[in-house]
Simulated assay, not measured.
Amino acid sequence: MKLKSKSTTLIVLIFSLLGVAFFLLSSLNYKNNNKHKSFVPGSKWTDTNGIHINAHGGGVLYYNGVYYWYGEYKASGRSGNTSLKGVSCYTSKDLYNWKNEGIVLKVDKDPNSEITKGCVIERPKVVYNKKTGKFVLWFHLELKNQGYNAARTAVATSDTPTGPFEFKKSFRPNKGVWPLNFTYQQKKLRTWNKKELKDWSAEWIASVKNGMLIQRDFEKGQMSRDMTVFVDSDEKAYHIHASEENLTLHISELTDDYLDFTDKWISVAPTGHNEAPAIFKQDGIYYMITSGCTGWDPNEARSFKSTSIWGPWQPLGNPSIGKEAHLTFRSQSTFILPVQGKEDAFIFMADRWQPRNPIDGTYVWLPINMMNGKPVLKWQDKWDLNTF
């Protein structure tokens, strides 16, 4: 009886250990099976914890073998498009699987702060400055309860890519400075406030092209809304943003520490109504993809190229081809990501906005192909880096 009891206990123990082993193996297989091995544009994209990635309007920094994806942290409901948390960050080594690193720039509890809870923080972009050793975050800032009237750009810094980032300042750029590509005659024109002009009349369009809105904002600085930052091969950095009531793009050179503007800037495609700029460089040619201005609704993308950052920028038309190309596959550009270790490999990053419940917004990542000297975006239900 004693022997039988011990045998029974031993059998129960063995089966218990086998059960634990089976559970652990099943859990491991579950995790392996849920490890992303490809991109599925527009679908729900989960992080390593199985939670939908929350990094909208974002950009990616590659540093010391790791990709850092920064974005707007969205919340549920209509108030979710205001900043209730701050800027989020995710890390990856393969671009498919992303670990949540938390909020790297937090909104301020102080109601008098420019980045107080409830302000609007959009399009965060982080670049690394080799001279200072600082990670520099630029973003579009709208002050709380002011709608989109502030139209400011803002900067923060950190000693590490995962923060915390310290807010430095916000402002309207290029105060009291004319663009490099303005003529002497344009600088002398005085059309603003002379008389009321009907929007989109021939005279109004000509006046905007000749600097009417630049003249309007000359003393207080130019508007800065949707933006990105581009670091060239010579480590010079440039701030590209929608300005002049979103009618015209501005490209501005940043100082050597990437914390301010040098007063060198140009206007691009005046009255073209471009926003959401994303830029890359291939074989000495600069390419830019933008969107039109239709609020949260998708529209047809545009593209440009130039042999110099200072232009002239040649329009190339819609880079998207195929079904829903007229809506950029129901998404809007946020950044163009160079893939490390692969020559001339670039990923078009875009968001599918969900304004009624912003946290549910998804991401559309597509490879950029070059055809006849133009960037081309073609829809793919599923793809991986072997595409390049």
Rank of each mutant, 00 (worst) to 15 (best):
E166A: 08
D283C: 02
T294H: 15
W353I: 07
A278W: 05
I205L: 10
I359S: 11
G295I: 12
D47M: 04
E196T: 15
L10P: 04
T8K: 12
G322K: 10
L10M: 05
T328Q: 15
G317L: 08
A21T: 12
V40T: 15
P338F: 02
Q185I: 09
I205G: 01
H140M: 04
F182V: 04
N54G: 03
N29P: 05
L137H: 01
G221L: 00
S320V: 13
N149L: 14
D257G: 05
P367I: 11
K144R: 15
D360M: 05
K93L: 04
S113G: 11
V229N: 02
D283V: 01
K264N: 13
S5A: 14
E244L: 14
D283H: 08
H140R: 03
H36M: 06
F171Y: 05
Q186G: 03
S320K: 09
K106H: 14
A301L: 14
K2M: 14
D263Y: 01
M371C: 03
S267M: 11
N372V: 05
M288Q: 09
I368V: 09
S79G: 12
F261Y: 05
W313K: 08
K130I: 12
I51F: 08
L316E: 09
K130D: 15
V136N: 00
W204D: 05
T157S: 02
F135C: 00
W69D: 00
N149E: 13
H36I: 08
V104S: 00
P179K: 10
W296H: 09
F39T: 00
E343R: 14
S207V: 01
N357A: 08
P277I: 01
G361C: 02
F304W: 10
P319N: 10
T46G: 01
Y63D: 01
F304H: 06
N129C: 12
Q340T: 11
F165A: 01
M349V: 09
G176S: 03
C89T: 04
S27V: 13
W204C: 05
M212C: 09
A150Y: 07
I214D: 03
S207N: 12
T191Y: 01
L259D: 12
V107A: 10
S306G: 00
P277C: 00
P338A: 01
V127G: 02
S291M: 12
A269W: 12
D256W: 13
S5W: 13
I205W: 07
Q222T: 00
W192I: 03
E101K: 04
F329A: 13
C119F: 14
G292F: 15
Q314M: 02
E142W: 10
M371D: 10
R352A: 11
D360A: 06
G284Y: 07
G292I: 15
E244C: 14
K131P: 08
F348H: 02
D257M: 11
F182P: 02
S83R: 06
V231A: 07
D297N: 15
G176V: 06
F261H: 06
G284P: 04
E235G: 03
L25G: 04
K169D: 13
V20K: 09
T362Y: 09
G19F: 13
Q332W: 14
A269K: 06
G341V: 08
L141Q: 01
K342I: 15
A154F: 08
K220V: 08
K323D: 13
Y70K: 07
S43W: 08
F182I: 02
T132E: 12
K198I: 15
M212F: 11
